[in-house]
Amino acid sequence: MSSTPSKGDLRTAALARREALSDEQRAAAAEAIAKRGLPVAIKPGTIVAGYSPIRSEIDPTPLMKNLAAQGAQLALPAITARGKSLIFRAWSPNDRLMLGSLGILEPSPAAAELVPDVMLVPLAAFDRAGHRIGYGAGHYDVTLAHLRKARASVAIGLAFAVQEIKAVPMQPHDVALDYVLTEKHAFDFRSS
């Protein structure tokens, strides 16, 4: 029997800790991240892709609204197919969203497709080396690898502090994050 926990076991444990947080703790964490802002400069027109939170994910909406006030152009992901890169469509906080193929809210297919300069990434768990555990479909790993071939795109994970783990078991297709922001810390992995 292996003494090293699998990604699945680590994911399950981290998600259980995330689920145990109260609604008040979740809202306070989202506001703390929004108040601190991003560790990268946002110039008018910078394209920032967020996400529509599912389950108990930290809500990026307060942060995204602050970024829009700084002149950022916002976008949200749309899932095309498993194993394929996400696409990003223009979004403003007052836009209506529709249910996508996996039941996740997405902008209308009529919204302009954008290529993000900064991508806010949901996650199940992370470590202090910038590695993340997602939900197993690989959407963000494929997307980050694809985007980084074309341009310098900054990937910033958003998480609750309770989602930090000692080490994520890495696989060849895994792509590291540049930063992870929690309600307590901003971790910078670019120099590691």
Results as ranks from 00 to 15, higher is better:
residue 74 L to Q: 08
residue 127 D to T: 04
residue 8 G to E: 07
residue 114 L to C: 00
residue 103 G to I: 08
residue 82 R to M: 14
residue 95 D to Y: 14
residue 149 K to V: 14
residue 12 T to F: 10
residue 3 S to C: 06
residue 4 T to C: 13
residue 154 V to M: 03
residue 131 H to I: 01
residue 102 L to M: 14
residue 115 V to Y: 03
residue 50 G to K: 09
residue 189 F to W: 02
residue 83 G to E: 07
residue 96 R to A: 15
residue 157 G to Q: 02
residue 77 P to F: 10
residue 54 I to T: 12
residue 9 D to H: 13
residue 90 A to D: 13
residue 187 F to M: 13
residue 83 G to W: 12
residue 99 L to K: 15
residue 82 R to K: 15
residue 57 E to G: 12
residue 97 L to E: 00
residue 68 A to N: 02
residue 58 I to A: 04
residue 147 L to A: 10
residue 187 F to Q: 05
residue 35 K to W: 10
residue 28 A to T: 11
residue 10 L to H: 00
residue 113 E to K: 14
residue 44 P to L: 12
residue 56 S to Y: 13
residue 175 V to R: 14
residue 146 H to P: 03
residue 16 A to H: 10
residue 159 A to H: 09
residue 137 A to M: 13
residue 137 A to I: 10
residue 167 A to N: 12
residue 182 T to N: 08
residue 75 A to F: 03
residue 128 R to T: 09
residue 80 T to C: 12
residue 15 L to Y: 09
residue 37 G to N: 05
residue 151 R to G: 00
residue 50 G to D: 02
residue 153 S to C: 15
residue 63 L to G: 03
residue 121 V to H: 05
residue 11 R to G: 06
residue 56 S to T: 15
residue 102 L to G: 01
residue 147 L to W: 12
residue 36 R to I: 02
residue 10 L to Y: 01
residue 56 S to W: 08
residue 13 A to H: 07
residue 143 T to N: 07
residue 149 K to Y: 06
residue 144 L to F: 10
residue 65 K to C: 13
residue 21 L to T: 04
residue 55 R to P: 00
residue 79 I to G: 02
residue 144 L to V: 07
residue 68 A to V: 04
residue 171 Q to T: 14
residue 158 L to D: 02
residue 76 L to F: 07
residue 50 G to V: 05
residue 179 Y to I: 10
residue 120 L to H: 00
residue 131 H to Q: 13
residue 160 F to E: 05
residue 186 A to F: 01
residue 157 G to V: 05
residue 68 A to K: 13
residue 98 M to E: 15
residue 103 G to F: 07
residue 38 L to V: 02
residue 80 T to D: 09
residue 188 D to K: 10
residue 68 A to G: 01
residue 190 R to K: 10
residue 46 T to W: 02
residue 74 L to V: 12
residue 163 Q to V: 05
residue 150 A to V: 06
residue 191 S to W: 04
residue 7 K to Y: 06
residue 147 L to G: 03
residue 6 S to N: 03
residue 16 A to W: 08
residue 149 K to I: 11
residue 139 H to Q: 03
residue 192 S to L: 13
residue 120 L to G: 01
